[in-house]
Design a protein around this nucleic acid. Structure first.
Lengths: 220, 220
DNA sequence: CGAATGGTTGATTGTGATCAATTCCCGTGG
DNA sequence: CCACGGGAATTGATCACAATCAACCATTCG
């Protein structure tokens, strides 16, 4: 569901060299600011150093859809086309390393010349991870109820956490737009999970997972 | 939403050489047969020559989720891991070209040696197309109502068709499992679109798009 | 202390799921 | 050619879950 756990164990510190393409000086964005907008020229992709980023898009009727949340270590914003398909915004203050694309990788499908294969292979791995995440997201939205979606969401966020206490960096509206629900339903589902003893809401944005197995059971 | 239109203009005939990795002799599958199952060793990926294929997965409670439909020319079944993440089944009788993976491409993220870049770049393009499709699918399931989902589905199927008559190769159950609905809702939504004069159901599996603009309008 | 923002809780509505018959279509066999 | 059978699709009635509309509460910030 998330790309979060991938590479999360080895976040780069500011100033470290990115492992592919041309790394640029780090950039900082404060909460709520957009890193790029849907339709912007996709000159760079990014590696997240610290903070949390969301990618989103709006339907014609104005409803927001959040495609993904990115955690430190994640790479995002690479595209096949010339333009970004989503807007990327800082959920919290964050630091990223922009990587200028060489212009060859994204044209891979068209011309089959044999240069610059390493970067393409690197990007292929990232793309496949994103693909698996997006596919799981689609299944969650298509086949699961509100409680199950929340359970799945919390499972991902709490992955590898010990003690199992999750800080939610995003608002209820963000969670709702990611899970295809409303803020009221998110709130009620969380309250229900707490009543069932599966989680405990230490604060609005601080969740203790009391029973991980039950969470996995609910999710399916 | 679909990968259908990509390459659809140049389907390979049986016996033609696949443009990447090691092509194998063509294989045929009859309607309902599975090409591979979730969890099977992903030794091959496939290029669809003729017919239609669906990829699907089941939730714990037995509900089926269809990830994608593939049309002639599409490439599917490539994985980052050693196993297939979905089951692939023949929606109609079909012919595919299996392509044995060299074992290097899928390990791209781990080792960064510079061999075999062309195949990786080729696969990167396919992966990115799939990613865009899966992201659009997630948005459709998360933010759109039944009529809108059907409209989007029909728009994709009718892309580039002239005259705008679409044959639906899959059952109502397949459509429902792809759109996160029930067969009854699919049926009612189609009936409603017909009553609105947007489409005409020439037969259960034959749809004439009367008003493409209205379809796009509904979808958003 | 008061306003503003974000979150929760309650009442009601609406959309799609579920349960239940038919009807349509198509292949098969008389 | 027509009668029959069986699966697929449609249509109808009711139900359930999440959306919506509306207050209310908590926390932060000026």
């Amino acid at each position: 569901m998330f790309a979060a756990e991938l590479h999360a164990s080895t976040p780069l510190r500011p100033g470290a060299t990115a492992p592919l393409a041309v790394a640029q000086p780090v950039m900082q964005f404060s909460e709520g600011k957009s890193l790029y907008e849907e339709g912007d020229d996709a000159a760079c992709f990014y590696r997240l150093v610290s903070g949390v980023v969301r990618t989103c898009r709006f339907s014609q009727d104005g409803r927001r859809h959040i495609d993904a949340f990115y955690m430190p270590g994640d790479v995002f914003g690479f595209e096949l086309t010339r333009e970004h398909g989503f807007t990327a915004e800082a959920v919290t203050d964050c630091v990223v390393i922009p990587c200028r694309r060489r212009g060859a990788e994204e044209l891979a499908a068209q011309n089959g010349t044999a240069q610059d294969g390493a970067a393409a292979r690197q990007l292929y791995g990232y793309a496949m991870q994103q693909l698996a995440r997006a596919q799981a997201h689609a299944q969650l939205l298509g086949r699961y109820g509100a409680a199950q979606r929340l359970a799945g969401f919390l499972l991902e966020l709490s992955a590898g956490k010990n003690p199992p206490i999750v800080e939610l960096p995003m608002s209820r509206q963000d969670i709702a737009d990611y899970l295809g629900l409303t803020i009221e339903t998110v709130s009620r589902a969380l309250a229900q999970l707490q009543k069932d003893g599966v989680i405990k809401l230490l604060a609005a944005r601080l969740v203790e997972v009391k029973n991980r197995a039950a969470l996995a059971e609910i999710c399916g």
